[in-house]
C-alpha cells in the first residue's frame, strides 16, 4: 500500500515537473517554434536530461512531417517519453497554457500597444535575440548530427535548398531519409 502510494507520488511529481517545465518553455517562446529549439536544448537536454540532442533532432524532424503546430508536436514526444500517454497530454497542454492565459487577458488592449513605437523597438530587439538563439541551436545540433562527409553533404544540400527553393519540409525529410538508407548501403 505504502509502496503503491510512493510510486503514485513519484509519477505525480514527474507530471507536475513536466507541466511546469513546458509552461516555462511556452512562456518564453517568442518568434515561433524555431527559437524554441534552443530553449528545449537548455531545459530538456541540459537541465532535466529528459532527452538527448539526437532524440530532440529526431522529434523535431518527425514533428515537421506531421500536421499541426511543430513546437507542440515536439512537446508531445518529450512528454510521452518521460511519462507515457498522460505525460504527452500534460506536456502538450502546458506549452499552450501560458499563451492562452496571456492572450485571453490582453487580447483587448494588445492591439493598441502593437502600434506604439517603443513596443516595436522592443520586439526588434527580441527578434535579434531570437536569431542568436536559433544560431546557438544550429551549432549545438550540428555537432551531433553531422558526423561524417555524407551527413555534411546532406546538410549542405538541404541548407541550400531551404534558402532557395520553396519546398515543404516534408519533402526534405523524406529525401534525406532515403539518402540515409542508400548511403549506408554503399558503406558496407
Amino acid at each position: 500500500m505504502l509502496m503503491k502510494l510512493k510510486i503514485l507520488m513519484s509519477k505525480l511529481k514527474i507530471l507536475i515537473e513536466l507541466f511546469i517545465t513546458f509552461s516555462k518553455i511556452g512562456a518564453v517562446t517568442f518568434g515561433g517554434g524555431y527559437a524554441m529549439l534552443m530553449i528545449l536544448l537548455r531545459e530538456i537536454v541540459q537541465n532535466k536530461h529528459w532527452a538527448t540532442e539526437q532524440e530532440l533532432t529526431d522529434y523535431y524532424a518527425i514533428a515537421q512531417c506531421t500536421p499541426g503546430v511543430i513546437a507542440v508536436n515536439v512537446a508531445t514526444f518529450v512528454g510521452r517519453k518521460t511519462a507515457g500517454n498522460l505525460g504527452g497530454i500534460i506536456a502538450t497542454l502546458a506549452v499552450v497554457f501560458p499563451s492562452v492565459v496571456i492572450i485571453s487577458l490582453l487580447a483587448g488592449v494588445i492591439k493598441a500597444y502593437a502600434s506604439l513605437e517603443w513596443v516595436k523597438n522592443a520586439f526588434a530587439g527580441v527578434r535579434v535575440c531570437v536569431c542568436v538563439l536559433i544560431f546557438n541551436a544550429v551549432i549545438k545540433l550540428f555537432n551531433k548530427a553531422i558526423i561524417d562527409k555524407k551527413t555534411l553533404i546532406i546538410y549542405l544540400l538541404v541548407l541550400a535548398g531551404a534558402m532557395t527553393l520553396n519546398i515543404s519540409p516534408v519533402v526534405f525529410v523524406i529525401l534525406a531519409g532515403i539518402a540515409g538508407i542508400i548511403l549506408s548501403v554503399k558503406k558496407s
Binding site: 546532406i154 538541404v158 531551404a162 526534405f172 534525406a176 540515409g180
Partner: peptide
Amino acid sequence: IMTGVRPACVGMVGG
C-alpha cells in the same frame, strides 16, 4: 533513416 534525416533537419533550421 534518422542518420540522414538529422543533418537535413539542422539544414532546414539553418535555412
